[in-house]
Design a protein around this nucleic acid. Sequence first.
DNA 1: TTGCGTTGAGAACGGTCGTTCTCTATAGTA
DNA 2: TACTATAGAGAACGACCGTTCTCAACGCAA
Lengths: 187, 187
Amino acid sequence: MIDPQQARTQVLLAANALFYQRGIQAVGMDAVRSAAGISLKRLYSLFPSKDALLIEVLKGWTAEWNEGVSLASSSATTPRDKLLAIYDFLDGWFRQDDFRGCAFINSFGELGAVSPDVAEIARGQKLAFQHYVASLVEELGGSPALAAQLAILAEGAQTTAAISGRPDAAFQARAAAEVLIRRELTA
Amino acid sequence: MIDPQQARTQVLLAANALFYQRGIQAVGMDAVRSAAGISLKRLYSLFPSKDALLIEVLKGWTAEWNEGVSLASSSATTPRDKLLAIYDFLDGWFRQDDFRGCAFINSFGELGAVSPDVAEIARGQKLAFQHYVASLVEELGGSPALAAQLAILAEGAQTTAAISGRPDAAFQARAAAEVLIRRELTA
DNA sequence: TTGCGTTGAGAACGGTCGTTCTCTATAGTA
DNA sequence: TACTATAGAGAACGACCGTTCTCAACGCAA
């Protein structure tokens, strides 16, 4: 474990999984250290503090989300299908064994009130998603209101799947989205 | 401050506000004690542990939510208007200065992975809300799918208003709900 | 007044966590 | 081989938190 780049990746992978699975405050730096298999000194030489590590993990989550969404929509051709692909992506995610809700919603709930950085990153991620939806809706000739509604459906599906344990929330959100889209396009 | 009932109420009020405003782990028992204006010994004679106190606070949140929803729907007469009143209730809530998102979503994000009690209470609250929506939708002659979709819209509005800071999420959710309801009733 | 049970205020305890420090082993160089 | 610089392992430190304990003040019955 000499390569700094590789050690850094190991730490980020470990922290990513631990923070997501158990919550941020519930995971100590020692747990991250042991999961990453490096020494505490090395860990602190790679990331100056737990806060700094958390910021990097949050950035990683942003990348993961963006990749997942863009991968799901890559097989779709029309803007409408790209929009609906979002809910298919959610469906696959909700059914994973380690699904524990949206990492940004969870982080915001845990630290949003106490850490402006966390609140701002979560907010940025949500706004970026809304922007993505809005751009597709615009291509489609829909209104900004429709875009907002489709984003709300995606958010609601995530909390419903996580807390109520209902993976079919993605399917329901998709069905609602289809209705809302069709209504605007045939009006 | 001799009346045990009154002291208990003071503690619950203080803990309610502090936990909601700053998060649960960020608030120490000493902060609760000082906000409630009682001694630590008395606090622990009223609630045997922080966990026990948290459970009671969560129950209080459940009662607050139920009262808010039923109050909002009390002025409506038809099932459709009662359903839409939910989003009006959300709208008023989102615009309050101290709005910091749904307490159950936040608690679940913070402790759901680590405390089965918190996870179960949050789940119970969400399921009860879904049940309430479903009963109104049934009165209205709508399908279970419509009920699920209306609940998802409400959840999504809450996270969107909280994280993105968009109080108009309630309005957007309401507009979407109107479309979905109308579509089922005129089909 | 005297003794006793209760209560309040907060010091104290044990544990944990983020962070730093010490010490040892090792690798590289002349 | 001798010296030096680095890095690993984990002990140590200071702070904080949930919880308990001490102790003094108070109310009250006789």
